[in-house]
Design a protein around this nucleic acid. Structure first.
Lengths: 174, 174
DNA sequence: CTTTTCCGGACCAATTTCGTCCGGTTCAAT
DNA sequence: ATTGAACCGGACGAAATTGGTCCGGAAAAG
C-alpha cells in the first residue's frame, strides 16, 4: 500500500527541475545532488517521464533534461502514473483484468471509492504546488557547507533560507 | 500501491462470517470454501484479526471462528490495519519514522492528504456494508453444482440467488 | 485418550523493488 | 574526424516483500 521510490524520486526530481526557469536544461547528476537521489536510478525514471512527454531530454555534451511543460500544467497523477503505470489499489480495479467475482464484490466497491479519492487528490495537485511547498535536502546541505566554508568558526547559527525561493548555485555563491 | 491479498482475504473471510447470525462459530475450512481462499493462509490472517479483537477463536472439536462484534461496528479500516499494520501511502507518513526532509516536503503534504481520504473511506465503511454488497464466488459455485445435481439435464437456466441474502447450506440443501 | 481444531513459528518460492552496469547513440566542441 | 560528455535502454542482480505451506503443540470435546 505504498508508492514506490521510483515515483517518489520522480516527483522530487521534477521539483528540482521546476525550481528553474522553464526550459533550462539540467544534468541528471545535478538533480540527484539537490534531491539526494541515487544517480543512475533517476536516469531510468526520467526516461519514463520523457516518454510520457513531461520532460524533454537532450543528449550529448551540454545535454540533460528540461521540463516539457509549465509546472502548473503537470499533475501529480500524471507523474506517478507515468512512472508506475495506472494507479490501482486492488486487483479488481485493474482496468483490463477486471473483477473475477460474479455479481457484486465487496472489495471492488470499497476500493473503487478509495481509489477515486486518491486520484482526485493527485490530479488536483500540480507540480507547481509541490515545488512551492518543497525544501530540498540536498540544496540545504550544500548551502550549509558553503556557509561554514565562509565562517568556519560559526558552529550553529548558520542561517538557512527557510521559506520562499531557495537561491541556486549561480546566484548564491559570491 | 496495492492492498495485499492478506487484507483482501481478510475482508472476504469476515463477510462470510458476517453473513451468519452473530456469534456462530465457523471453521476456517468452511469460510475458505465460500470465498475461494487458500486454506492455511486464512488461518494466519484470522490470527491477526483475533488479536485485534475483531474475531473470537475457539479451539478443539466444534471450534472455529466467530465474529466478536456486530458487523455494523467493525470498519474496513480496522480490518485492514489489523492485518497490514497502519496504512501509510509513503515513507514520510510512517508514524515513528517520520520525514527525513528538513523544512517542508512535497511528498509529505501530497500523500498525507491522499492518505486521509483513503482512511476516511475505509473508516466510514463497515463490515455490514461490505457484506450487503457482496456475492461470494464459492457459494455461487456450490449452489450451481447442487442445482445441476438436482436437474442434471438443465444446462443453463440454473437460477442463482442474486440479491439479498444467500441461502446457507443448512437451509438450501433439501 | 483420541480427535478435532486453532496457535504460532519456521520455512520457502515467486515476485517486486531498488537499484547498478555497460555498450550504444547522439551531440558539441576541438 | 575525433573526442568527450551526456542520455538510452536493456541486462543484471541483491534485497525485501508477498503469498503462501508445513508442522509440532496446545486446548477443548467426547
Amino acid at each position: 500500500m505504498q508508492i514506490t521510490r521510483a515515483a517518489e524520486y520522480g516527483v522530487l526530481g521534477l521539483t528540482a527541475l521546476a525550481r528553474r526557469p522553464l526550459g533550462e536544461v539540467v544534468m541528471i547528476e545535478t538533480l540527484c545532488a539537490e534531491e539526494d537521489i541515487p544517480n543512475s536510478f533517476l536516469g531510468k525514471i526520467l526516461q519514463s517521464l520523457s516518454k510520457a512527454g513531461i520532460v524533454k531530454s537532450a543528449r550529448g555534451s551540454g545535454g540533460g533534461f528540461s521540463l516539457a511543460r509549465n509546472p502548473s500544467e503537470v499533475t501529480a497523477l500524471e507523474i506517478i502514473e507515468a512512472i508506475e503505470g495506472p494507479i490501482s489499489l486492488q486487483r479488481c480495479l485493474d482496468e483490463d483484468l477486471g473483477c473475477e467475482h460474479s455479481g457484486g464484490c465487496a472489495l471492488c466497491s470499497l476500493f473503487a471509492e478509495a481509489q477515486e479519492r486518491v486520484k482526485e487528490v493527485f490530479s488536483r495537485t500540480t507540480l507547481a504546488d509541490l515545488t512551492g511547498r518543497h525544501i530540498p535536502n540536498g540544496l540545504v546541505r550544500q548551502a550549509r557547507s558553503r556557509a561554514s566554508d565562509a565562517h568556519p568558526a560559526t558552529p550553529h547559527p548558520t542561517p538557512l533560507p527557510v521559506a520562499g525561493r531557495i537561491p541556486l548555485e549561480a546566484e548564491s555563491t559570491r
